[in-house]
C-alpha cells in the first residue's frame, strides 16, 4: 500500500507547488488546500496502513479487534482537517474582502502595505470603488 500512497502524496505536493507559485490568491489558496491534503495522507501513511476495520470497541469487549486500523492518525487528521478548513475559510473571506477593498486578487498589484516608490509612506489610499464583477458585466 505504501507505493500508491507515496505517489499520491507526490502528485498532490507537485500540484500544490504549481498552484502556490501562481500570482493569484485564489489559486494559491487551492494550492494550500492540496498541500494540506498531502500532509494528511502523509500522516495516514506514517501511522502504517494496515487494518481496515474501524477502531471501535464492540459491546462487551475490552479492546478493539486485532485488525483494527490505527486510530491515532485518524484523530490527528480529523483535527488537522478541521483546522485547515477553518484557516481556508478565513483566508477565502480575506481574499473576498481584498477584492472588494483593493480591487485585485493578484499580490503583485497590491501596494497598500508596501508602497513601491518613495521612502515616506503615504497615508493609505482611499478604497477604490467596487469594480463590477466580470460575469454580470459581460
Amino acid at each position: 500500500m505504501e507505493l500508491p500512497f507515496a505517489l499520491a502524496i507526490g502528485v498532490l505536493v507537485a500540484g500544490a507547488v504549481y498552484m502556490l507559485l501562481a500570482r493569484d490568491l485564489p489559486r494559491m489558496l487551492v494550492g494550500f488546500v492540496l498541500l494540506g491534503t498531502a500532509a494528511n495522507l502523509l500522516i495516514l501513511l506514517a501511522g502504517r496502513v494496515g487494518g481496515m476495520t474501524p477502531p471501535l470497541v464492540a459491546a462487551g469487549m475490552a479492546a478493539p479487534g486485532a485488525d483494527a486500523a490505527n486510530p491515532l492518525p485518524q484523530a490527528l487528521i480529523l483535527t488537522a482537517i478541521v483546522i485547515g478548513f477553518g484557516l481556508a475559510a478565513f483566508a477565502l473571506m480575506l481574499i473576498v474582502k481584498a477584492r472588494a477593498v483593493l480591487g485585485t486578487v493578484r499580490p503583485d498589484e497590491m501596494a497598500a502595505a508596501e508602497p513601491r516608490a518613495g521612502a515616506v509612506s503615504s497615508p493609505p489610499t482611499p478604497p477604490r470603488a467596487l469594480p463590477p464583477p466580470r460575469r454580470e458585466a459581460a
Binding site: G86, A89, M93, V96, A100, L130, P132, P133, E136
Partner: peptide, 23 residues
C-alpha cells in the same frame, strides 16, 4: 461558527448584488 461564516458570506453577496444593481 458555521452560522457566523455563512451569514457573513450571504450578507456580502446581498450587498454586492445591491451595489451592482445600483451602479
Amino acid at each position: 461558527m458555521a452560522v457566523a461564516i455563512f451569514i457573513g458570506l450571504l450578507e456580502w453577496k446581498a450587498a454586492r448584488a445591491a451595489a451592482t444593481e445600483g451602479g
